[in-house]
Design a protein around this nucleic acid. Structure first.
Length: 664
DNA sequence: GTAGGGTTAG
């Protein structure tokens, strides 16, 4: 029933998008109440009943609540008997002021007054040092505390997990179990998080499974918090089946549990399932409504699928529920529209925001980037800075990526320099990867290789992968061999790298080498990822996989393609068969490239869309040169606008020309 | 006294 309601609301969203003035269906939410209680200090009301001593404590406490830490500390130095509550409020105040030096003052004062063995204050101290990013002090406080209650242990686990010291938490958790203290529901959430806090190795997954067993044994499978954390842990390990089993078996589910499972599908490249589960949530639950977090995950899934119609329904729902003042939601909406090929709608959503953060700006920058509008992306980047928003590392990745897509080499180099000089940011591996991509694609491979040589940090697989990708475009065998040698060491099970190298050899007609690489791929038990394309027709997604043979389900489409192909050949289309990794004759190669998933999707789109309707296709890999050239011809021949989003960027085909300027 | 899910990139 509620799902129908959303469909109805779709009409509202269209009218909303057509009007430029911000328009909300619900009033904006009131701001959250201030955390600091602003009790006014009123000495006259307390002096009559209390001693001078406790009055001093009261005054310190009130000053803390008012946020006047300096004065509170002055009074503290004259106070001979501070109470536990006084210290508690002082520590809280240090956290709020983010003052490590004041924290030391209070800490040593408290030790001098014999409170250093108070487990309550030890918990507070640990939490404070954690907030102040001083993990050494966290450990120190824990080590000195003799009476380690479960609160003390939990505070330690929480702090270390937040700081990314997952493995340390798991070691300490063993130690805790040996001391005989039992875990509570808080402990389980922290240690489960600790399993994914560092790297996601199989050892840590096994620890997670062990903890799962403890949870069942101790009856904590009734806790929604614990079980939701468990779903999330499996999700982060990519164990989608485990996550869904835990989720299905949960007796009680709330919005967070549903969101965790939807996010699990979204982040594990199962956007279909994410959208399906969202639908189920809307239909099944009576008291659980999706919130902003849920919406972000479903929007991501729609973006991945380029499911524009579904995305518009979500937009309608967001407006109806007043979630359109929440920044992450709006950023996700901008990205959704852009990735569905509706850049102008994304821009409009952005324009209607009354406040923006760096993520909102980054969303817009990258949106223009993937559509190939490099100069516009740079302009937005500069506007962001002019408006006083400091760029984040991702801003730079977005804008450098935009330069790369548009072939703006000099601008990219300028931005890379200014990143270090003007924004005082140290380039990370990702930034170097962008630069290698930028130079490499522009056929400045030697410069790209030089960047890698001069790097002050270890070049990771991203960097070498960018170089190898560029070598494939420009068929540089020698450099491709160098890059792939490193890549095979760094990520031996990434099939894509082997395929790229084989592509380079194939193009250079080095068929023995092609065979050798293919054997290597097989020997390691890997498979080439099959090409897959999606198209949304009447709110339904259709998926196509590349086929080598003429076969049943796609017979009609293939027949159409053969016909189109021969007609277009007369008009000058030349099949680009060099992308085929088999040493076959041209006729056979032509047949193989005609079975590529993207061409099947185009054919399906031609049959199933009305005149003047744009065909929108998403693809899991990069567009091959033949599909690119074929689609350009089709767009002119059939007078159709075709939008293809590959794994990397957008290609907008119109009248025989592509928006990427053949810069694949 | 402590707790669970989501933002932007390539």
């Amino acid at each position: 029933m509620r799902y129908k309601e959303i469909i109805m609301a779709c009409f509202n969203v269209i009218s909303h998008l057509n009007s430029h003035s911000p328009h909300r269906l619900l009033p904006p939410k009131p701001k959250p109440a201030r955390l600091i209680c602003s009790l006014a200090l009123n000495p006259s009301s307390t002096t009559t009943t209390t001693t001078a001593n406790s009055n001093n404590n009261n005054r310190i406490q009130s000053l803390c609540k008012q946020g006047n830490l300096n004065q509170a500390l002055q009074l503290l130095s004259a106070e001979p008997n501070p109470t536990q509550l006084t210290y508690e409020l002082l520590l809280l105040s240090c956290t709020r002021q983010h003052s490590l030096s004041d924290a030391y003052t209070v800490h040593s004062h408290l030790s001098d007054n014999g409170f250093d063995q108070d487990p309550f204050l030890a918990t507070k101290l640990i939490n404070m040092y954690s907030e102040l990013d001083s993990i050494d002090h966290v450990r120190q406080v824990f080590d000195k505390t003799r009476d380690r209650t479960i609160y003390v242990w939990n505070a330690l686990f929480r702090s270390l997990t937040l700081a990314g010291h997952g493995e340390e938490v798991l070691d300490l958790y063993r130690r805790m179990n040996r001391t005989g203290i039992s875990s509570d529901r808080f402990t389980y959430t922290y240690v489960l998080k600790a399993c994914v806090a560092s790297n996601c190795s199989s050892t840590l997954l096994n620890r997670g499974k062990e903890i799962h067993a403890h949870i069942l044994r101790h009856g904590y499978d009734a806790s929604v918090y614990v079980m939701t954390t468990l779903v999330d842990m499996y999700a982060r390990f990519g164990c989608v089946t485990y996550a869904s089993v835990v989720f299905e078996e949960m007796a009680v589910k709330n919005v967070v549990s549903w969101s965790a499972m939807i996010a699990c599908y979204a982040r594990n490249e199962m956007p279909f399932e994410a959208v399906e589960l969202f639908r189920e949530m809307m239909l099944q639950t009576c008291d659980t409504y999706p919130n902003s977090v849920t919406m972000v995950s479903v929007l991501q899934a729609c973006a991945a699928l380029a499911a524009l119609e579904q995305g518009k329904l979500l937009h309608a729902y967001i407006l109806r529920k007043g979630l359109d003042s929440i920044l992450p939601v709006i950023s996700a909406l901008v990205v959704m529209y852009a990735k569905c090929g509706k850049l102008e709608l994304g821009q409009r959503v952005f324009d209607q925001m009354d406040k923006r953060d760096v993520v909102s700006w980054n969303s817009l920058i990258s949106s223009y980037g993937v559509h190939g509008y490099g100069e516009k992306a740079i302009q937005i980047f500069e506007e962001m800075i002019n408006q006083g928003v400091s760029p984040s590392p991702i801003s730079l990745i977005s804008v450098l990526g935009a330069c790369s897509h548009a072939g703006l080499v000099e601008e990219g180099k300028r931005l890379f320099k200014s990143m270090q000089r003007d924004h005082k940011m140290r380039p990370g591996v990702e930034h170097y990867a962008c630069m290698v991509d930028l130079l490499g694609r522009a056929n400045r491979l030697d410069e790209a290789a030089k960047i890698i040589e001069d790097m002050r940090i270890e070049p990771g697989p991203r960097v070498w992968g960018s170089l190898l990708g560029s070598c494939r475009i420009h068929c540089n065998v020698e450099l491709a061999e160098r890059a792939s040698k490193r890549l095979f060491e760094l990520e031996p099970s990434n099939a894509g790298n082997y395929v790229l190298l084989a592509d380079v050899y194939a193009e250079a007609n080095m068929w023995d080498e092609v065979k050798r690489v293919k054997k290597l791929l097989e020997a390691r038990g890997l498979q080439k990822i099959p090409g897959r394309s999606w198209i949304e027709v009447k709110r339904k997604m259709h998926s196509f996989v590349s086929v080598d043979e003429f076969n049943q389900p796609f017979e009609e489409l293939q027949a159409l393609l053969i016909e189109l192909c021969s007609e277009m050949k007369e008009k000058g289309y030349m099949p680009q068969t060099k992308v085929v990794l088999y040493d076959l004759d041209d006729k056979e190669k032509e047949r193989i490239v005609l079975g590529h998933s993207e061409k099947l999707a185009v054919a399906f789109g031609l049959i199933n869309t009305s005149k003047g309707e744009t065909i929108r296709i998403t693809k899991n890999l990069r567009l091959c040169e033949d599909c690119h050239s074929f689609t350009k011809f089709i767009s002119k021949f059939a007078n159709k606008e075709i939008l293809v989003r590959d794994v990397n960027r957008f290609h907008h085909f119109r009248n025989g020309v592509c928006s990427c300027g053949d810069y694949l």
